[in-house]
């Protein structure tokens, strides 16, 4: 029975490496965009090492890019990143009974609890594979994400004025790419459309960074009343 077991291990490992590499590739765009938003290379790297959550990192530098590197903009960037990290809490709730970490042993799995590690873990049938999927994917994404962040930051630093290279458009495209898979459903599409309108049209009247937070309310409106709810309500 050794052979099927080996094959199964190989497939979890190859899925983990594939996901890690693919995710790492967009670490290049994060690194470059972070430097063009006004962070230096070290600050950019620290975000990938400590925050380690793509959506929150893009949000942080997105608000900094719009609001500048000081004052209320930084506060809004912190709150945006924090709010975008909320889904990691739900992933952690789901991973806790699987991994059963104890005491200080919770610190590392918590850091690695992100979209990708949770997705690969929950896609496996057997408990052993689920654990392996979490750890291998978490580790692979951590290594590739940080490596590519560094490469992107160095490249972005060398490019100079970001506008000449269309990096402002690249940042907008990155956000489009992050929400794209969710736009096929009418409820999330409506939430996204309302959020875009609120954020754009309140920008002339509110301090920089704040429009993003106000637009976040569109999720509360649709979430409370469950307007345009999907036909099969599956809360993951």
């Amino acid at each position: 029975m050794a052979k099927p077991k080996n094959q199964r291990e190989f497939s979890v490992l190859s899925i983990s490496l594939g996901v890690g590499f693919a995710t790492g590739l967009y670490g290049i765009s994060f690194g470059a965009l972070s430097v063009s938003a006004g962070l230096d290379i070290v600050q950019t790297q620290v975000l990938s090492l400590l925050m380690f959550s793509g959506g929150s990192q893009f949000a942080f530098i997105g608000v900094i890019a719009a609001a500048g590197v000081g004052g209320i903009g930084v506060g809004a960037a912190v709150v945006s990143a924090w709010l975008l990290g909320i889904r990691n809490g739900f992933y952690a709730l789901r991973m806790a009974p699987l991994l059963k970490p104890l005491g200080l042993g919770k610190l590392i799995p918590a850091l690695l609890t992100i979209d990708e590690s949770t997705a690969v873990a929950t896609a496996q049938k057997e408990i052993a594979d689920q654990k392996k999927g979490f750890w291998l994917t978490g580790a692979a994404v951590f290594v590739f994400w940080n490596l590519m962040t560094f490469i992107g930051a160095v490249l972005g630093d060398a490019l100079g004025d970001p506008k000449n290279f269309g990096l402002d458009a690249a940042a907008a495209a990155a956000f489009l790419g992050l929400i794209w898979p969710r736009l096929m459903e009418r409820q999330t599409f409506a939430v996204a459309a309302l959020a875009i309108l609120i954020a754009t049209f309140t920008t002339p009247y509110l301090p920089a960074g704040v429009p993003v937070l106000v637009a976040g309310l569109s999720s509360v409106i649709f979430g409370l009343f469950n307007w345009l709810k999907p036909k099969e309500q599956v809360i993951k």
Partner: peptide, 10 residues
């Protein structure tokens, strides 16, 4: 979705 879409708008 709301926050990422808002960032797309800004």
């Amino acid at each position: 979705v709301a926050l990422l879409a808002a960032l797309l708008g800004v």
